[in-house]
């Protein structure tokens, strides 16, 4: 029973990881930028949704409006900042996204203050009691929304004309230019879509855990996800997101208590702390050493 309950909690948070990771991979594929600011997009999306909800807009309209605003912000970041950094070194590009993260956090701090805010209920409260397993509507809704959107996005990417141009740009920029694709527009679209996805992810996180600046940490949590899935694989990010969510839940619910029982018996260590946060990173290191392109990634040139 415990296992099932943990699996459900894991899948629900995992679906949000997947959403965030999807955005990071999308940007990386298209523009080669590793975006540390993805967590900031999630946070900003959550705060903007909150602002919209406070205007007594219907929940659907509010979240959609927030996503639209996020898309504009995403595209603007690309146009105003990242586009000027095409020739910069990797470390500079990483740092510029970190600078964005710091800036957006400070912006939210200035506007909404440092305290945690109760996020309005957009889904009905309460839970389904399913043979001793509790499933809250929040979880169901977060899971359903995140998954639907991710799959819808994958379909869009796979089957539409814009999707085709996106893939083409990601595959080979020069070839894309040669056949007349407006590459820089495609890159802007990728950033816009990615920021919008992150915005929705942030809003979902806020319904699950309340609204605060810490939502931006999700960006760093998502990194093991994308590496394990493969930096350039959207499907990989999706699957790895779910896997890591479940893995985290099981670590927290089963491995940690078991380990602690043993440790308390034999050592003076009382607690293994936030093991669930480290395991993904340990997995990441292992993955990098054994198969750096990730489970679903294509064999890259990054290995010597």
């Amino acid at each position: 029973m415990l296992g099932l309950q943990l699996a459900i909690a894991g899948v629900a948070t995992g679906s949000v990881y997947a959403l965030i990771a999807l955005g990071i991979v999308l940007i990386y594929k298209c523009s080669g930028v590793v975006n540390f600011a993805q967590g900031a997009y999630a946070m900003l999306g959550a705060y903007i949704s909150y602002f919209m909800l406070r205007l007594h807009l219907p929940a659907v309209v509010a979240v959609l409006a927030a996503m639209a605003i996020m898309a504009v912000i995403g595209a603007a970041t690309e146009r105003l900042i990242l586009r000027r950094m095409l020739k910069a070194q990797i470390v500079s590009v990483m740092m510029v996204t970190l600078g964005l993260l710091i800036f957006f956090r400070a912006l939210c701090l200035a506007v909404w203050g440092p305290d945690q805010i109760a996020f309005p209920q957009i889904f009905p409260a309460g839970s389904i009691d399913f043979a001793g397993v509790y499933i809250t509507y929040n979880y169901v809704a977060a899971f359903a929304l995140a998954t639907t959107l991710s799959v819808a996005f994958l379909c869009f990417y796979q089957f539409t004309a814009i999707g085709l141009m996106q893939r083409c740009t990601a595959d080979n920029t020069r070839a894309a230019l040669a056949i007349g694709i407006h590459v820089s527009n495609q890159i802007s679209i990728a950033w816009a879509a990615s920021a919008a996805l992150a915005g929705l992810g942030g809003a979902l996180l806020a319904t699950l855990g309340g609204l605060s600046l810490t939502i931006s940490d999700i960006g760093l949590v998502a990194f093991p996800v994308i590496v394990v899935g493969g930096l350039d694989s959207l499907v990989g990010a999706l699957i790895a997101g779910f896997l890591l969510g479940v893995l985290e839940a099981f670590t927290e619910g089963m491995l940690t208590p078991a380990l602690e029982t043993v440790l308390r018996k034999f050592t003076s260590i009382d607690s293994v702390g936030a093991l669930q946060q480290v395991i993904p990173y340990a997995l990441l290191v292992l993955m990098l050493l054994l198969r750096p392109q990730g489970i679903f990634g294509r064999r890259g040139v990054e290995r010597v």
Partner: peptide
């Protein structure tokens, strides 16, 4: 010694 650039940077993030 085995990884380069971005991938190495991410491995240091893990460290």
């Amino acid at each position: 010694l085995r990884l380069r650039g971005l991938y190495f940077a991410i491995s240091t993030l893990a460290a």
